[in-house]
Amino acid sequence: MASFLITGSSRGLGLALATRLASLPSGQVGTIFATARQDNSTQLRELINASSGRIEFVGLDVTDKKSIQEATSLVEHKLQGKGLDYLINNAGAVDWNPAGVEGMENLNEMFNLNVTGVHEVTRAFLPLLRRGEKKSVINISTTMGSIAKAHLYAQAPTPAYKITKAALNMLSVQYAQQYASEGFTFLLISPGWLKTDLGGSRADLSVETGAEKAIDIVLKTGPHQNGKFVNIHVPGWVNANGNNAYQGKEIEW
């Protein structure tokens, strides 16, 4: 039974990831630590109550070092000497700047959440991950963070999001290189353009589909994927027209 910790679980993709994991057999998925800044999500509370103890809420603000330390201590206590198998860094934000890069006033704030927060959470949980069997860190990214594909998204008025996700990609590679010898896997997943509060109603896929396909990748993760950046695989979208095709392959960035 593998253990999982997901950041940003109160809504959107994070909530869908927790829901998908909880739907799988207990012999495959054990404890799921669903974290968020506050315990004020009705949907998450309902999911926890229906999980027969498999999902546990942990307060965690990825931009607050004290909160991260407290969450790490609580998870260590809950694991009762066991390690953490999977860390899924999902918490993040998207900016909206119609003026483009010139109007970008929140870059530091976005970096703190999308990049520095991932770094602080990851290094705080490294000791528990070392004691786990899977030693896997999954960072949720986006093709909009790909420099090679930047021309496809030139008109999207989200410059800070693109910049910080590109930085997240390099952060993940740095971790992958340093911890490969210890058997760690650091994997970047782009879950697609999803119909969430962040993605909007015009998005390609339901959040449930994005979560299901992302978890399919997570459960097959191993050292052979260390440092890679991959897309989800969605039948019917493999050869889709437009910017987004979901082929389940590595993404150039």
Rank of each mutant, 00 (worst) to 15 (best):
S51K: 02
G27E: 15
H77M: 13
E133R: 11
V29C: 01
R131V: 07
E133Q: 13
L126E: 03
S136D: 09
V118Q: 06
A34S: 10
N49A: 13
G30P: 14
E120A: 05
S67W: 11
I55L: 11
V101I: 15
Y86E: 07
A71T: 06
Q80D: 14
R123D: 11
A36F: 07
L107D: 10
N90L: 08
L129F: 00
I48A: 04
L129D: 00
A50P: 00
G59P: 03
V62N: 03
V118Y: 03
L79A: 09
T116W: 12
E70D: 15
N89C: 14
A71D: 04
S67M: 08
N97I: 15
N106H: 09
L126I: 14
T35Q: 02
K65F: 04
G53D: 06
G132H: 04
L60W: 05
E133I: 09
A36K: 05
L126K: 03
V75H: 01
A93H: 00
Q69D: 13
R131N: 07
L87N: 02
Q38P: 00
G132A: 03
F125D: 12
N108Y: 12
M104H: 03
N112P: 03
A71S: 08
M110K: 08
G100N: 14
E76K: 12
S52E: 07
E102D: 15
G92L: 00
A71Y: 02
A50T: 04
D95H: 05
E133K: 12
F57E: 11
G59T: 11
E56V: 11
Q43V: 06
S51D: 05
A99F: 01
R123E: 14
Q38V: 08
N49Y: 04
G92W: 01
Q28L: 15
I55Q: 04
G27K: 14
F111C: 09
I88G: 05
E56G: 03
E56M: 09
A99I: 01
N89K: 13
E102G: 11
S67Q: 12
E70N: 15
A99G: 00
N106K: 11
G27N: 15
P127M: 04
E105T: 14
L44A: 03
K66Y: 10
